[in-house]
Amino acid sequence: MDGTGTLFRKEVLRFWKVSFQTVGAPVLTAVLYLLIFGHVLEDHVKVYGQIGYTAFLIPGLVMMSLLQNAFANTSSSLIQSKITGNLVFLLVSPLSHWAWYLAYVGASVVRGLVVGAGVLVVTVWFAPPGLAQPLWALVFAVLGAALMGSLGLIAGLWAEKFDQMAAFQNFIVLPMTMLAGVFYSVHTLPDLWQTASHLNPFFYMIDGFRHGFFGVSDVSPWLSLAVVGASTLAVAALTLSLLKSGYKLRH
């Protein structure tokens, strides 16, 4: 556990020392989304009957920022270590695959929660969405960050150069996040796209998180919890298996 704690602190300090980039930039991006979409659609869109569009948008932006940054923390750390060659210092240390997983994913959860909290603090002044059931919001935030941190480890293990990592993020993570109901309720979509959205696990993360703010959502929060929980366990199991086998770490 001492080694796990040391690696965890190292990973937290790695992103915190450049917090202007790793925390400040995502917060600014979320605010720009809110200003543009909120200004254009606030008077034209009502969600769940009475909720204003800006208030509806805030939890989606918080969760989107949280998920993307949890993924970025583990994936960027691992690919940088592989390319610069300093990963060898971890490989020769007596750390188990569990220690790697807990440290890397734990740090990604911290970064995701810090960014999400920053986005919430800044955007809540535009239209306070309230917190009807905060425990639901916290559960989905932690599970979502852990899932994306695990996925980031898989991407970091697989990628051998930065453009492969960029492809993974731009063609898998970004589309699945943007099409998960961040900017709209899936009930407004045609039947075909509603069905497609329900096949996207990212939708359940965002919808369950939004339920914590409003007490209402597109699907049952228990269904969302089951999907997100099962997805997190499956991705974590795959990540641990890859770490244990030394996939693309030991040649």
Rank of each mutant, 00 (worst) to 15 (best):
T4M: 14
T6Q: 13
F8E: 08
R9E: 07
R14L: 09
K17T: 14
K17R: 15
G24L: 08
V31A: 15
L32E: 01
L32I: 15
Y33K: 02
H39M: 09
V40S: 03
H44W: 02
Y48A: 12
Q50E: 14
Y53N: 10
G60N: 08
M63L: 12
L66F: 07
A70H: 06
T74L: 07
K82Y: 03
T84F: 12
T84Y: 12
L87K: 06
V88D: 15
F89C: 04
L91V: 11
L91D: 09
V92L: 13
P94H: 11
L102W: 14
A103Y: 10
V105N: 07
V109T: 08
G112A: 04
V115R: 01
A117Y: 00
G118K: 01
V119Q: 02
L120N: 06
T123D: 13
V124E: 10
V124M: 13
W125V: 13
G130E: 04
L135C: 02
V139T: 08
F140D: 05
F140S: 01
G144N: 00
G144R: 00
G144E: 00
L151D: 01
L151P: 00
L153M: 15
I154T: 05
L157C: 04
W158Y: 14
W158I: 10
A159V: 01
K161T: 08
F162W: 14
Q164L: 03
F171M: 10
M178I: 12
V182F: 07
H187Y: 10
H187L: 06
D191L: 15
W193N: 05
H198N: 01
N200Y: 02
Y204C: 03
M205N: 00
M205I: 10
I206N: 07
D207L: 12
D207H: 10
G208P: 05
R210E: 06
W222R: 02
L223V: 14
S224G: 11
L225V: 02
V227N: 08
T232Q: 08
A236P: 07
L238T: 11
S241T: 12
G246Q: 12
